[in-house]
């Protein structure tokens, strides 16, 4: 039951989606739309599981004093402060006591975590947590510069939520992305050193295309380089892409079929 029923569900839903593809009738369209919506909603519940996992791994790291455990506080700080920002916003131009409120909430959470991870004295941490909690509640009650807020998706555009997005998430994200410029160079060097036929073919093709798109070197080789590189992109590239795509397509189709038929069930645990 524990394993057979889910496999039966997979079969039923899989079969339905295959049939659905061939049935244009509105009933089939409705069910299709509902199913896709359901998957979205289930995904959000799963996100809660994810956040829980992140929280638990971080707290466990602190508890067991694993290497670099101190940084887990940074993760937890980022997590909770961003959630708090996602639920509060400024009412006017002034921030009032907002940042002090944020600090007291963070300290409350920090002290609770401290109490959870410490094996001995928990009393002091809990008392401090209580004090910070009272302070944050008082600020929340009497400060009118900001408030808890219900947002629509557009609503998330205001407040510190947006500021953290712009000044923490985006810079780190684009910097991580730009690391690729360095790594692509080291990867090219690695390919250069490999010195076998396949690596050389790869590198040669890469060089031709790279020279084509280099604004300084491209003119030296003139028209011919551009044409060769276009030819490479349009002809052998096209052929290989097609072979790979057909292969991948068959792989996906075969795996999906095996999943529907319950032949491939590695993704479903036992017991």
């Amino acid at each position: 039951m524990k394993r057979q029923f889910p496999l039966f569900l997979v079969f039923i839903f899989g079969l339905f989606m295959v049939f659905q593809y061939f049935v244009p009738h509105e009933t089939s369209e409705w069910v299709y739309e509902f199913l896709l919506d359901w998957i979205l909603v289930i995904g959000i519940f799963a996100l809660a599981l994810g956040i829980w996992s992140l929280y638990k791994v971080s707290v466990d790291k602190i508890k067991t004093r694993k290497a670099n455990w101190g940084y887990s506080y940074v993760t937890l700080f980022g997590l909770f402060v961003m959630i708090l920002f996602g639920f509060t916003s400024q009412n006017g131009d002034s921030w009032g006591w907002y940042f002090i409120f944020v600090a007291t909430v963070m300290l409350t959470i920090g002290m609770v975590i401290q109490a959870m991870v410490s094996s001995g004295q928990k009393g002091l941490s809990l008392i401090l947590a209580g004090v910070f909690l009272v302070a944050s509640v008082l600020i929340g009650m009497f400060d009118n510069a900001w408030s808890f807020h219900f947002y629509t998706a557009e609503g998330l555009q205001n407040s510190m939520f947006r500021a953290f997005f712009d000044h923490i998430l985006i810079p780190i994200l684009s910097t991580m992305f730009s690391l690729l410029a360095f790594f692509i160079a080291s990867a090219a060097y690695r390919a250069f050193r490999a010195r076998n036929l396949l690596a050389s073919l790869l590198l040669l093709a890469a060089l031709i295309v790279m020279l084509r798109f280099n604004p300084y070197l491209s003119p030296i080789f003139g028209d011919y380089m551009a044409k060769t590189s276009n030819w490479l992109m349009n002809v052998p590239n096209m052929a290989a892409q097609r072979a790979i795509v057909i292969g991948i397509g068959l792989g996906i189709v075969a795996t999906a079929l095996k999943v529907i038929l319950g032949i491939e069930r590695g993704y479903m645990g036992k017991g």
Binding site: L47, L49, G50, I51, S53, L54, K56, V57, D60, L169, I172, L173, M176, F177
Partner: peptide, 13 residues
């Protein structure tokens, strides 16, 4: 349990 864990749903993070 902590063999498999969630990091974040943001590509570069």
């Amino acid at each position: 349990e902590d063999t498999v864990f969630f990091v974040t749903q943001s590509q570069f993070a």
